[in-house]
Amino acid sequence: MPSRIAEIRLVSSDHEVYEPCDDSFALVDALLADRTNLIEHNPKICMEIGCGSGYVITSLILLLKNEVPGVHFLATDTNPIAARVTNETLEAHGVEADVICTDIASCLEKRLAGSVDVIVVNPPYVPTPDYEVGMEGIASAWAGGENGRTVIDKILPVVDLLLSEKGWFYLVTLTSNSPSEICLLMRKKGYASRIMVQRSTDEENLIILKFWRDKDQEMLDKETSSSSSFLSQFSRSLSSFIEKQWR
């Protein structure tokens, strides 16, 4: 049976809300590629931060629907119109999630600490002047500040707090966000990572990363490997990834 994802014609829209784009599709492709694992993962609580049109969270729900019973879904966005549009998209697909208008996950953090099994984020990642970050309206959907990292760097510690022991985290990045550095940051918090999707469009070079807690990694890290060897390892895996795609 082909797995279902959200249908574009059913995705609601508003000129103030980010429309599903290459980055959204790449993220959903990463989830699709990981579908079997996700089902086996048997998550209880899944969450999207920055849900925009609702395309991604709806796809995630449809992916797991009928496969994993009793999953609870949450979606947040700072843009109240995005929250409304997400609700409409969910409804059009006949699925449900709790949509909350909030900054990243504030007001959920304490309650859900260590409880979320899957977090997906397509953050505002475009490098812009810092003052553009978090402005009202559609600009906040992409404005990522210096190196596009301002919002990402705020999200990472929150994700670390929310994820359960077995939790997984999928993140959209651009090459200009220095994904290898993001992996290194997460590695210091005890996470292993891998590249799920790499895609170059006319405008951007997208990399979808997946993170999970890795006890061994933490141990290993303390013992031997240095940051520089990690970075070179990352660039090696990225180039082999790109090679594979070309073949």
């Binding site: 109240p80 929250a83 409304r84 609700n87 949509v99 909350i100 208008c101 909030t102 900054d103």
Partner: peptide, 9 residues
Amino acid sequence: NKGIPNMLL
């Protein structure tokens, strides 16, 4: 509103 709590400060 419409089931969406607005927790923005």
